[in-house]
Design a binder for these strands. Sequence first.
RNA 1: UCGGAAGGGCGGAGGAUCGCUUUCAGCGCAAGUUGGAAGAGGAAAGUCCGAACUCCAUAGGGCGCGAUGCCGCGUAACCUGAAUUAGGUUCAGGAUACACGCGGGCAGUAAUGUCGAGAGACAUUCUGACGGAUAGUGCCACAGAAAAUUAAACCGCCCAGCCCUUCUCAAAGCCGCUAGUUACAGAACGUUCGCACAGGCUGCGAGCGGUAGAGGCCGGGCUGAUACUGGCAGUUUUGGGAAGGGCUGGUGUAAGGGUGAAAAGGUGGGGUAAGAGCCCACCGCCCCAAGAGUAAUCGAGGGGGCACGGAAAACCCCAUCGGGUGCAAGGCCAAAUAGGAAACCGCGGAGCUGCCCGCUCCACGUCCCGUUAAACGGACCGGUUUCGGGUAUUGGCUGCUCAGACAAAUGAUUCUCUCUCCCGCUUUGGCGGGACAGACAAAAUUCGGCUUACAGCUCUUCCGAAAUC
RNA 2: GCACCCGUAGCUCAAUUGGAUAGAGCAUCUGACUACGGAUCAGAAGGUUGAACGUUCAAUUCGUUCCGGGUGCA
Length: 125
Amino acid sequence: MTADGSGRMRLTRAMRLQKTREFARIRNEGRRSVRGCLVVNWMLLMPGSICRVGLITTKKLGKAIIRTRARRLLRETFRLHQHDFRQPVAMVLVARASIIGKKLADVERDFVTLLRQANLLNETK
RNA sequence: UCGGAAGGGCGGAGGAUCGCUUUCAGCGCAAGUUGGAAGAGGAAAGUCCGAACUCCAUAGGGCGCGAUGCCGCGUAACCUGAAUUAGGUUCAGGAUACACGCGGGCAGUAAUGUCGAGAGACAUUCUGACGGAUAGUGCCACAGAAAAUUAAACCGCCCAGCCCUUCUCAAAGCCGCUAGUUACAGAACGUUCGCACAGGCUGCGAGCGGUAGAGGCCGGGCUGAUACUGGCAGUUUUGGGAAGGGCUGGUGUAAGGGUGAAAAGGUGGGGUAAGAGCCCACCGCCCCAAGAGUAAUCGAGGGGGCACGGAAAACCCCAUCGGGUGCAAGGCCAAAUAGGAAACCGCGGAGCUGCCCGCUCCACGUCCCGUUAAACGGACCGGUUUCGGGUAUUGGCUGCUCAGACAAAUGAUUCUCUCUCCCGCUUUGGCGGGACAGACAAAAUUCGGCUUACAGCUCUUCCGAAAUC
RNA sequence: GCACCCGUAGCUCAAUUGGAUAGAGCAUCUGACUACGGAUCAGAAGGUUGAACGUUCAAUUCGUUCCGGGUGCA
């Protein structure tokens, strides 16, 4: 199934973090790096498990439409790069105020740079 | 054609690829997967109103609290029925709203216009949280005589009395002071006596004494003036008048006091000692009222000389409405923590019968410990009430929806077409290039309203400017 | 989602039931004192009372609507 799903760009509910405990565990015990318009907290998982992601857009960003827009951009970024990881990972993406008004390509560039700094990227691909 | 104001509507369309949420169907033991269908707004926002719905409380009423406040009409979710459907949708009818919308009435006086001498009236636009200030309490700073109810203390005006000052008129006198006494026609001076009343530096008369240095100024006349005569000035007294001031009083007054946001009907005239609705005309106001209108209300006509300042968005009064609570409401299931303390209860009821015994049924907690049984006590258990503890890890389903979540879906990339804007070329038409379809903004139980935000397009009405006919 | 509270000088707070120049402390500035600085003393400046509209003769105060900030719920 993993071979079948590796080519798909799915992002189902099972791939999302939903519990406050999971968020707190990753943010407290995981590693953290910052660049541009986003913050990444991540933890490596056992090989063979599913990559999981959680998104945080605080009220400091602005009103509801701004936060929804930021959340969608982060989610799309993760979805497009979910198969580029060296090994499965659980991460929490936090949007910063500079994400307002940016396009997907800008967010994607920051995200890839972050992953390369963290040495999570599968460069062979 | 352009610009402005008010009101209303719209808020891109179609496709491809990769994805998301819900649901239906198929496959699969299941996780899942394949296909179909549906998937943000006019404000979804603010949470400013009201309603549905929910649970709790509730005989009824009162107090308190909150809200609303001219009149009429209309409107949602909801309920019922029909059509068509898998749920649901559409249509028709009905109900509620003291949310709100529309129309009308009245008021305000801001603007404009018309009429009028003026006060003011009328029309249009605009504005109005539009019951009561005559239920009561309190407030109206400063200024001002007075800021609120039989207005009148003060100034002022008027009248009367008394006093004072000034001016003026009339009459009657007088003409610097002191000393002195020769002379003057009629004098001035002193003194004595008598008479008069205004009682005095008084006037008149008579007597005596006695003088030329003084006789208001100017003019006239005479030989000659102190003396006669004319004028002027001063002064005294008396009387009259005028003005001013002071005091006292008024069954006089409220016109005036220029201060204030606001001053006790207004304008004009008459009237009066001065004044005043005191009287008159007009305007305004109050009361009654034929009649008109569903009603608010308007009102022909009549009466009243006029009382009733503002503010209730101060407290408040009146009328009406509202029990509280809010989907984190509420219901169900499961788990975690705790499984504590105190008090009370754990025995009767029904049928058969007139009653008792007895029998049957429901029920009498366990029957563990002490005691022979009942019964009692203890332990555990159950129930109720009160108290205490836990809730920085509770979760799921439901409520909940042909959008329907609970770390929260409705997205990303791209193509075509129009819309708008900018730049360049062009006489116009048009062509080419660029600007992210470009504003405000994302459902969270439902519905109706209000308010706020908003690029651009468009419709209606009105106003202004320009051009043409 | 629902319910509720607060905005005054740079900061922390006042301002009686509406009445006029919105006050105090700290901070700032100027001067004095000192060789210099601190402390002290004297003086000055600094406010669209969150915004708009309304009620009133008059609004920090009363009413409505927005803006900003904050609190609670099981």
